[in-house]
């Protein structure tokens, strides 16, 4: 069911990872993603995976829960893997009709798949251990310097909060509308591209109307609760740097150095 998608979901807890400032986690995650692209051999991935598992263990988020989220994007991973597997030229390992697998292709496919898996788990660790509101607050604060050049940082953060909140609602709504039109004999699977595009109209129009209704209701509800922009607002949980964040920052620098160093070790294979 749609409710089970864990990507972007929060797993309540009170671990050292949960307690970190959202800004630390945002920067840490960005850094981790960049580092995954710095890695050029399997040693780098071994180190990156070890670091990730250390964070997971520290966060006390059940591994089962994390992998459930991964299964939702399994298709993307599989697609990346297959694309690389068949599309790279080199020494032929296996050949059948028009399909060819090369040694280089296999190596590249594994490499890409591992990178993607680490990337997805890494970024879902951020959302799993940070409440959406802290995440958007953190982002708002990080973007603050850009506010000086006219970037509406508070509005961007609020938009993200609302988007995260309404993704499940809109997914359920879409599911309902698709089923209702199917019950009226609508067919979304056959016909040529144009016919298929046309068959989406009975879904898109009700979905648009629903979204507008939600937006209108929500705007009224927010106004009724005295929302009047970012100025003069306070926060229930003010985010602030603590000791844990200093430790995390030091660890991040060390990790960056190790990852860069890993480029110069001879590869595993």
């Amino acid at each position: 069911m749609i409710r089970d998608i864990t990507l972007g979901q929060y797993y309540p807890g009170d671990s050292p990872v949960h307690r970190l400032d959202a800004r630390t986690k945002i920067i840490g995650t960005l850094l981790y993603i960049i580092e995954l692209f710095i890695v050029n051999n399997y040693w780098g991935f071994v180190i990156a995976a070890a670091a990730l598992f250390a964070v997971i263990a520290l966060s006390r988020v059940p591994v089962k829960f994390i992998f459930r989220g991964l299964s939702a994007v399994f298709i993307i991973i599989a697609f990346t893997f297959l694309l690389n597997l068949f599309m790279v030229d080199g020494r032929v390992l296996w050949h059948w009709k028009f399909l060819t697998i090369t040694y280089e292709g296999l190596s590249r496919a594994c490499f890409m798949a591992i990178r993607l898996v680490l990337l997805i788990i890494g970024s879902s660790m951020m959302t799993l251990t940070t409440k959406p509101i802290e995440l958007t607050d953190g982002l708002e604060k990080l973007l603050k310097p850009f506010g000086l050049i006219g970037l509406p940082t508070h509005e961007i953060a609020l938009m993200m909060t609302i988007a995260l909140r309404f993704i499940p609602t809109l997914m359920e709504e879409t599911d309902k509308i698709i089923k209702a039109q199917e019950a009226r004999g609508a067919d979304f699977e056959s016909g040529n591209l144009l016919q298929r595009a046309k068959s989406l109209i009975p879904i898109l129009i009700p979905l648009f109307i629903s979204s507008f209704r939600i937006a209108q209701d929500l705007a009224l509800a927010m106004e009724a609760r005295c929302y009047h922009g970012g100025s003069g607002r306070t926060r229930m949980n003010e985010i602030h740097f603590g000791k844990g964040d200093v430790v995390a920052a030091i660890l991040m620098v060390i990790f960056l150095a190790v990852i860069i160093a890993s480029r110069f070790i001879p590869d595993l294979f």
Partner: peptide, 22 residues
């Protein structure tokens, strides 16, 4: 559904008081 602003229960309840600058 359409009047809850934040994904997490307590953050939503805090939305009004936060607007009041408490």
């Amino acid at each position: 559904d359409n009047q809850i602003v934040s994904s997490i229960v307590e953050d939503d309840v805090a939305f009004g008081p936060e607007n009041l600058g408490i």
